[in-house]
């Protein structure tokens, strides 16, 4: 049973996406981490890549934790969009395992593409076979990466890899790279069935957003 409803607490347990995200970043880049939690990703990157990083976080306790950890954090609600950020003002905007908990999912992805030259989105793949299996068995999936019960989950927009691919096609979003992993191992064969976590590197196809 989950004892927390923080939408970002997955990150502390699942750092499997961090290494991949780090690989897609340039040394010293300007990075915006949306839904940054206690700033763990930015701390992870600070030591190795010297990114100029800012976190965005809504939750008071997480904002306090970021400040304690000496992480730049801006307290705001992502559902309101990114109006405080200029077009193309960040090298990369990251949304790590938060997409599925957003209400205005479409809006935030488009806002990220407006603000960031590149966007990295990670989310749990609902098409993962264990999820499918639990549904087949007649229950809503509960797992390490989806630790909530149907009645207390913050996740309102779960999707599969195929769903997200289609979303990108329909929104003129270029997928620069995509990695799918399960327990830190990269999945190449039948990713929408065997992959637990999807990590996308995106940019807008539209010029002058």
């Amino acid at each position: 049973m989950p004892n927390s409803v923080s939408i970002t607490n997955n990150v502390t347990e699942f750092r499997q996406d961090f290494a991949i995200i780090a690989n897609w970043l340039k040394f010293g880049c300007k990075l915006l981490d949306l839904g940054c939690g206690n700033g763990e990703l930015l701390q992870f990157l600070r030591g190795s890549l010297e990114v100029k990083g800012y976190g965005v976080e809504k939750d008071d306790a997480n904002v306090l934790a970021c400040i304690k950890n000496n992480i730049n954090v801006i307290q705001m609600d992502l559902e309101d969009g990114l109006s405080g950020f200029e077009n193309q003002s960040f090298d990369t905007v990251v949304l790590s395992q938060t997409l599925q908990a957003m209400h205005n999912t479409e809006k935030i992805v488009l806002e990220m593409l407006r603000v960031g030259k590149e966007v990295i989105v990670t989310f749990p793949n609902f098409g993962y076979w264990r999820n499918r299996w639990q549904i087949t068995a007649g229950r809503m999936p509960v797992s390490k990466i989806l630790p909530y019960q149907w009645y207390d989950t913050p996740n309102v927009h779960l999707c599969t890899i195929n769903d997200f691919d289609e979303f990108c096609r329909n929104h003129q979003i270029e997928i620069i790279q995509r990695k799918v992993i399960t327990d830190s191992k990269e999945i190449h064969w039948m990713p929408n069935i065997l992959g637990n976590l999807a990590i996308y590197r995106l940019k807008s196809r539209q010029l002058g957003v």
């Binding site: 008071d60 970021c66 307290q75 705001m76 003002s89």
Partner: peptide
Amino acid sequence: SREIVKALLDNERTVSYAEIT
């Protein structure tokens, strides 16, 4: 306050912002 924060972000300054309830 967010206007100040935005201007600082535009300048890539080290800044944190909290909105206290």
